[in-house]
């Protein structure tokens, strides 16, 4: 592989990273929002969200990306490839994140809330100062784990023609007729990215364990 090929490869890696990164950033917040709404147990809305989460968890990302990209125009919505990819990945990861956040909500101890109320904190101050920081710590390992899953799922966007880190290997081998080196190089880059996330996850777990008294 020459320098040109490496450059293409890095471009592919960048595409994977920025699209996944955008989806992750929106998906984490979105997931928190869904979890909060679900805690309110609003009839009908709650069932709707359960259905969404169940569907999103069962649908392969490949299938979902194709579906969004191909069927949006029939509803008069014009999405370019990147937008379709980001929307699909966000809706996918938000469903998983919502469950992670919700688990953190449900396992939060009532005693801590009482201690906060007994000091005269309002529910808002309690949520912002006591509950949310702990929920972030205890959800973080799960959230980071979901991030690495999303990146492992990100080659799905190749199916609508986005040249990501996987798809770019086809491009390179179409010129060099040597498919093995670019695939191995791409694998190496994935290893690097996901190893970093696994490392972060281990660190987050260590921190979260401190909360369990």
């Amino acid at each position: 592989m020459n320098g040109q090929a490496w450059l293409l490869l890095l471009e592919g890696a960048w595409t994977t990273l920025w699209i996944s990164g955008t989806a992750i950033a929106i998906g984490v917040i979105f997931g928190l929002g869904i979890a909060l709404v679900r805690m309110a147990r609003i009839p009908f809305v709650d069932q709707l969200l359960v259905l969404y989460i169940s569907l999103a968890r069962a649908t392969p990302l490949v299938t979902f990306v194709l579906f969004l990209f191909l069927s949006a125009p029939t509803f008069g919505i014009n999405m370019n490839r990147n937008t379709a990819a980001i929307v699909a990945m966000t809706l996918n990861t938000a469903a998983f994140n919502a469950e992670i956040w919700r688990a953190a909500f449900l396992s939060f101890s009532r005693e801590q809330k009482e201690a906060a109320l007994a000091c005269g904190m309002t529910s808002r101050v309690f949520f912002r100062r006591i509950m949310l920081p702990q929920m972030i710590s205890s959800s973080l390992p799960g959230l980071v784990n979901e991030m690495s899953f999303l990146i492992k799922g990100s080659p799905a966007i190749a199916v609508i023609g986005i040249v990501d880190l996987t798809r770019v290997t086809n491009r390179i081998s179409a010129v060099t007729y040597e498919p093995l080196p670019p695939i191995l190089a791409a694998a190496l880059l994935y290893m690097l990215i996901i190893s970093i996330l696994l490392k972060l996850q281990a660190m987050a777990e260590k921190k979260a364990n401190r909360l369990a008294m």
């Binding site: 801590q112 005269g120 904190m121 401190r210 909360l211 369990a212 008294m213």
Partner: peptide
């Protein structure tokens, strides 16, 4: 309401059997 309750609760302190320190 919650705010008025909070104002009054601020005038009492409570120590629990299970400590209930905030672990973070």
């Amino acid at each position: 309401n919650n705010k008025e309750l909070a104002t009054l609760r601020a005038k009492t302190g409570m120590v629990f059997q299970g400590f209930n320190l905030w672990p973070h």
